[in-house]
Design a protein around this nucleic acid. Structure first.
Lengths: 261, 261
DNA sequence: TAGTGGTCTAGACCACATT
DNA sequence: ATGTGGTCTAGACCACTAG
């Protein structure tokens, strides 16, 4: 029925034919994940350029020796990441922009470290205190019950950047002051087996009080960026409540949002 | 083989037996989506309390007359939303916190309206101008090419809240100044068939200049919250670039993050 | 040992967009 | 009319967790 008769179909090639995929069925890594990673790598390093079609899922699955649902699962994970777009009746293509960094629960320490700023941390306080009303509400515990209070001053190149005040539920973990001086709180939580899952944040601004100004070596009345955050683990239990203030002259939040369909 | 003989198994009931699910196979709405919505409703209105087990997926699927993959798809969508947690060998349960609002590309207009603040908008400028270097870079177009410039002052109860400056790519759409006075930009874009997909934001703070102070009826030097945002559609093409300033005394960003696994 | 979710298969039919 | 992704089925085996 094909108009071109027996001639090989001059398909666009889908830009994916040149890419070699190596799937290891004996690996404990799921096949859909292996495929997703290799697709992502192909996009990242340019083998798949923005706008390129991926080729239909049926062909892809037979070519890879996988079932269509498995291939779909791989593709879907990249769609969720914002790297691919599906269009019914058209195909799947690479998004046109270089959107890369996903949204993250920003860790100030990691942010600064990634920027090569060599962050340092002074632990000002690390002790148990009774929970005030706002802290108790945020952590979902009784007012007056004991919580860990953590006050830290973070700096880069000897210049203060932020004052961090955090509260953790009782008996969650023992925080080693020494280790807090050399790493971030979230990394410490992670290494203790606590996986953060979500957080509620409020970001605002206000003028520095005299005390805050002295602490951060700003002038009284200087603009400060403020952030309150309650973080939850994967079961939805509050893990941390913090009140942070940042020198607006030296820090800003930078993040990427993905809109929920 | 059951130790209890013919007695009905005294299963915990899974708290889901009492919930009635109405699936309409003739509806154009996918079955997995119908199920997800009804599960979410059950969680929202308390029929499924935090910590409740959902019951295993096989039973659930036979009980609903669906296949397991379909039920899994419904459950997975709620897991992605952060409402459910899966634990291998244990089961699926409702998260322990009342995390509700997902992360959204915050629309100031919608935020204020949702808060019952009855926002008003003064359109100060709505015209075509040549793109400056920063605007051109953000929108991925040539410097000097024509873009739509939009300047708006937003207020509630007669009090200014924010000054919004936005740039849109050429020929994207014609913005009706009258409609901009009564709704938000994002809603206008949406009704024009443009679906936002992701955005890159930078949030900071600074002290108000004399002009800004006058515009927002603040004192010179007052703390302002600043936001720059580039928004992209679902193909990754830039759709809007904006520079906003907010009175810190009257506004803060409030949002929820979901950590990517 | 039993039960759970995690993964995977090999099909099927439908809705939508393009030609 | 054709080709695409969107949905759905009815199984299967495995890995992990619990008692």
């Amino acid at each position: 029925m094909a108009k071109t008769g027996e001639r090989a179909r001059a398909v666009p090639g889908s830009a994916l034919d040149a890419v070699h995929f190596a799937l290891d069925r004996s690996s404990p890594v799921p096949l859909y994940y292996q495929l997703a990673q290799q697709l992502e790598a192909a996009i990242e390093h340019g083998a798949l350029a923005p706008g390129n079609l991926l080729g239909n899922e049926i062909d892809l699955s037979t070519r890879l020796g996988l079932s269509r649902p498995t291939v779909r699962q791989a593709i879907q994970s990249l769609v969720d990441k914002g790297l691919l777009v599906r269009r019914r009746g058209v195909g799947t293509q690479v998004v046109h922009s270089q959107v890369k960094r996903p949204l993250e629960l920003s860790s100030l320490y990691d942010d600064l470290e990634a920027a090569g700023q060599g962050p340092t941390t002074d632990v000002l306080r690390n002790e148990r205190v009774p929970a005030t009303a706002d802290v108790a509400a945020a952590l979902g515990i009784a007012e007056g019950s004991e919580v860990t209070l953590l006050e830290r001053l973070r700096a880069t190149h000897g210049q203060p950047v932020a004052f961090l005040c955090n509260y953790l539920p009782p008996a969650l973990l023992d925080l080693d002051t020494d280790r807090l001086g050399t790493t971030g709180l979230y990394r410490l939580l992670r290494s203790a087996g606590i996986t953060l899952h979500s957080a509620r944040q409020t970001v605002g601004a206000r003028s520095a009080t005299a005390e805050e100004a002295a602490l951060l070596t700003e002038k009284e009345g200087a603009a400060l960026l403020t952030m309150q955050r309650t973080a939850y683990d994967d079961t939805g239990r509050p893990v941390e409540y913090g009140t942070h203030i940042y020198r607006a002259s030296r820090y800003a939040f930078d993040f990427q949002l993905l809109v929920r369909s």
